[in-house]
């Protein structure tokens, strides 16, 4: 078990949205304000961690043939719990995310991690996998929200941050956010479905560029090391 490796995997090299390219419906749909993004990201993080732990705990007793049905029941159970909790304690978030909270049931990230990771790993490893993968998902949502909000309406932290009476976080989604430039100069189209598709496309492109570049760098470093080694051996 290697927590540091799992962390980089969840955040960068095996990021659920940017690299595995799963769970994109909600990613594009709800990233209009930072409030929605953070709320959705944390909900997925909690559900993913709980499901990972449970699936990993029961991995030895579930029959192979009906495992998917069992996973779905476990996931649906946790999604219902989170849905009801949000309705009770953060109704504004529940309203803003609407049908996308129950739809976490069919979010490929959760069933994908259960199938690909928790089936074969210990409970602790699965727990950290859930936390880090959920964190990677949250970070992507936050990046998309910040970008779309800034370009679309010149705002930062809509719903989550209020600066009217000093800086404070609002948990009920009422904060107006920080206005960086007047909203009428923003490209309002970024708040529409068009912006969701475009932002995610650009983000994945940037990620692919960066990963390719770092892979090339590693290769070059390897080559240089090999060359140096050869020179040393030749000198000997």
């Amino acid at each position: 078990m290697n927590i540091k490796k799992q962390f980089t995997e969840g955040l960068i090299t095996n990021n659920p949205v940017l690299v595995q390219q799963i769970g994109m419906c909600a990613t594009m749909a709800i990233t209009t304000t930072l409030f929605n993004g953070v709320g959705m990201g944390l909900s997925v993080l909690i559900i993913l961690t709980c499901c990972n732990v449970v699936v990993s705990a029961i991995r030895k007793i579930i029959p192979e043939e009906i495992r998917l049905a069992i996973f779905v029941v476990v996931i649906a159970g946790f999604v219902t719990i989170v849905d009801l909790l949000l309705q009770a304690f953060i109704p504004a978030l529940s309203e803003a995310l609407g049908v996308f909270i129950p739809l976490i049931v069919v979010n490929c990230i959760i069933i994908g991690r259960a199938e690909a990771f928790c089936q074969k790993n210990t409970i602790t490893a699965s727990f950290f996998d859930g936390v880090f993968q959920g964190f990677g998902y949250t970070v992507v949502l936050i990046i998309m929200c910040v970008f779309r909000e800034f370009v679309g309406s010149g705002r930062f932290g809509g719903g989550l941050i209020d600066v009217a009476n000093g800086f404070r976080f609002t948990m009920d989604g009422t904060g107006a956010g920080i206005q960086l430039f007047p909203s009428q100069y923003g490209a309002a189209i970024m708040n529409l479905p068009f912006g969701g598709f475009l932002t995610l496309g650009l983000l994945i492109a940037v990620m692919q560029y960066a990963l390719k570049k770092s892979a090339k760098k590693k290769e070059e470093a390897k080559k240089a090391a090999k060359k140096a080694e050869e020179e040393v051996s030749e000198a000997c």
Binding site: Q21, I189, L192, P193, F194, G195, G196, F197, L198, L200, G201, L202, I204, A205, V206, Q208, Y209, K212
Partner: peptide, 22 residues
């Protein structure tokens, strides 16, 4: 561009189709 290969170019073209549907 090379880095747009695969999903990104799909998403960008989907965004244009979405624009038409708007």
């Amino acid at each position: 561009p090379e880095c747009f290969e695969g999903f990104p170019i799909c998403l960008v073209s989907a965004s244009l189709v979405a624009l038409a549907f708007m």
